[in-house]
Amino acid sequence: MNAMTKTGVAALKLDDLRKNFGKSEIIRGIDLEIGDGERHAVIGPNGAGKSTLFNLITGRFPPTSGKVYLHGQDLAGKAPYEINRMGLSRSFQITNIFPKMTVFENVRCSLLWSEGYRYSFWNIVNRAQHLTEEADRILEQINLTERRELPAGVLSYAEQRALEIGITMAGGADVIMLDEPTAGMSHSETDYIVDLIRKVTEKKTLIMVEHDMGVVFGLADRISVLVYGEIIATGKPEEVRANARVQEAYLGAALEAEH
């Protein structure tokens, strides 16, 4: 995997990132540095551009202007698969798995590239013992061992979300981006996913979009607040909580709803 974990180089750096769709500016100049091993949450009201920001970083959409650097490397013009190979992996707001394949196969497929199998047609994957072991280890971690042979499409919602997190981190990427990992979940399911995220992102850089303030304040080292395509505050949870602008724009209402 990518070994660019030199100190001093941010895991992810955004430099005046902008995105317009037609005349409307969705992302309006974002500067952000996320350090190695940091757990960073992006919060903000609906329509603030959180998912768009994710899509710009991961190469799903090209930015209108500005730069994204992963471990100091410019991501301009890179396709999603190239960005993934450089060590960035993401999950999606809407569950995004391989529904007809078994749970085990889902995980194994997400290991293939990083284990160096590329497009080979001279290896038989069933023979690769380390692949099977590694996939089973991940299944164990995400508590899906018992679902191993089921088609992923028949899993419960929470299980599918867990599987997606498993797929996202399986490739060994050191920067993990999760888009609303607990959306649509009950309290107990949320607790399960939060534990899971904490476990699997250890020593990795995590960037997540999340609506559940309990999750955000429990998990994140730092928080950025995105409102109308701009970051109005970045800092430690308590700093963000105390920030007057944030209170006014967003957080007050959200925190009240929480209690």
Partner: peptide, 11 residues
């Protein structure tokens, strides 16, 4: 099954 997901797995 899901071409976009495959892209985000490096393929």
């Amino acid at each position: 099954d899901n071409p976009e997901r495959a892209e985000f797995l490096g393929y």
